[in-house]
């Protein structure tokens, strides 16, 4: 059964802040969902190959050819903050 600390850990990995109520609510709801998901164990999958792609394809490759990049203003057009042609983010760590 998923516990509150599991939800907190997953949220931390996903860089999601959750408030107290969300943590409680999600622990309960996700518990129910995973409980439902547990029904997968009723099916015997010994020796079954997992499916990642429903249409069987392989080796889809492109030639090593340079194509036009975006004009830099366009690359930066949606940036919340920028400086000297670079994206700007807050400092990496606090003290």
């Amino acid at each position: 059964m998923i516990k509150r600390k599991d939800v907190e850990h997953a949220a931390a990995l996903a860089k999601l802040k959750l408030n107290k109520e969300e943590k409680e609510k999600y622990t309960e709801q996700i518990g129910e969902i995973l409980n439902y998901v547990d029904k997968l164990n009723e099916l015997n999958t010994d020796g079954v190959v997992p499916t990642a792609y429903t249409v069987p394809m392989k080796n889809v490759l492109r030639e090593d050819k340079v194509e036009k990049s975006l004009p830099r203003e366009r690359s930066l057009a949606n940036a919340p903050d920028q400086k000297d042609g670079q994206f700007r983010a807050p400092k990496i760590m606090s003290d």
Partner: peptide, 19 residues
């Protein structure tokens, strides 16, 4: 298809895919 050339201006070799 962006170029891998070293020493270009910042973000000059970028496109929707590599961004």
């Amino acid at each position: 298809g962006c170029s891998t050339e070293f020493g270009k201006e910042p973000n000059e070799n970028t496109c929707p895919v590599c961004l």
